[in-house]
Design a protein around this nucleic acid. Structure first.
Length: 287
DNA sequence: TCGTGTCAAGGCCCT
DNA sequence: AGGGCCTTGACACGA
């Protein structure tokens, strides 16, 4: 049972260096290199701080932010030895302390889009995540199905064939607001991709059966790896802010989902970040 | 120094 | 066909 912190400590996040592409395009390459490299070095140091927090509290899991290397397409970050050196330190720290590192590209990754350019761009995003994952020893890259229109499952299955095999082996598919765990499992069975179960998304988009009935399949599809799950509590009720995350995982939800913490490594998706993780850890210490 | 509006990318839903 | 919304923090800019 690992309990995962997501991307940052409360109150502080990654540096980007500049706001938006328009601002970036006004700069010379030298200026972009300088600002972006500075931001990347800051981000890597900050990520190490997060890992130290994880080490000291024994949760054993952390999601690395996708903006670790900001605006990666616009500069040759791999040419900067200072960055590669720092990444090595991160990798070693995670490995030495048995911290499972996760990555989770954002909503713009739509492998099954009806638009080919979007598919192409999604593959670029995934390839970037793969590069970072190799440098950091990340074995899990979680994505959503993306589109839920028409033959979306067939498109997803077809497009996974475009992925590098080693990248594909790292990918997990998570149920989301629009595609339930049952459909995710169907895609996983046909592609060999591992599923990731989001307990809260299952409330928003339930499948034909309660999620408990899919646990066995999820365990089987996870092969020899510990399966991953996401937990979050809604900020509002079903009419209002039900999709957004609250500060902490509610005690009610911890009681409801506690038995799955034995089977899964669980990422804590909550605004309270490390405080929310701490609360979950304390909950399990007490029982 | 503080507060506020802006920021690459997609999908979906409503009009 | 087009606009708002999803979600959230960093940053730039103006007061």
């Amino acid at each position: 049972m690992k309990i995962g912190l997501v991307c940052m400590l409360k109150g502080r996040g990654m540096k980007k260096g500049f706001t938006g592409i328009k601002a970036l395009e006004k700069l010379s390459q030298v200026e972009i290199d300088k600002k972006a490299c500075e931001a990347a070095l800051y981000n890597i140091d900050y990520t190490l701080e997060c890992l130290k927090w994880v080490k000291n509290h024994g949760q054993g899991m952390f999601r690395v932010s996708s903006s670790l290397i900001p605006y990666n397409e616009f500069w040759n970050w791999k040419n900067f030895d200072s960055i590669l050196e720092k990444l090595k330190i991160l990798k070693k720290f995670a490995k030495d302390n048995n911290i499972r590192l996760i990555m989770h590209p954002d909503q713009f990754t739509v492998l099954n889009s009806e638009n080919n350019e979007v598919v192409h761009n999604s593959i670029k995003i995934l390839n970037h995540h793969y590069e970072i994952s190799e440098l950091l020893g990340v074995e899990d890259i979680i994505i959503h199905v993306g589109s839920s229109k028409g033959d979306y499952k067939e498109r997803f299955i077809k497009n996974t064939k475009l992925l590098n095999k080693k990248l594909k082996a790292k990918i997990l598919l998570e149920n989301c607001h629009s595609v339930g765990i049952e459909d995710v499992i169907e895609i996983c069975e046909k592609t060999g991709i591992r599923p990731c179960l989001d307990f809260h998304h299952d409330r928003i988009k339930p499948s034909s059966q309660s999620f408990e009935n899919y646990i066995e399949k999820i365990l089987n599809l996870s092969k020899n790896k510990v399966p991953l799950a996401h937990i979050s509590s809604p900020a509002g009720d079903e009419k209002n802010s039900y999709k957004s995350h609250s500060e902490y995982i509610s005690t009610e939800d911890l009681i409801k989902f506690r038995k799955y913490f034995d089977l899964f490594d669980v990422e804590i998706e909550a605004k309270g970040k490390e405080k929310a993780v701490k609360k979950v850890v304390d909950f399990f210490k007490k029982i």
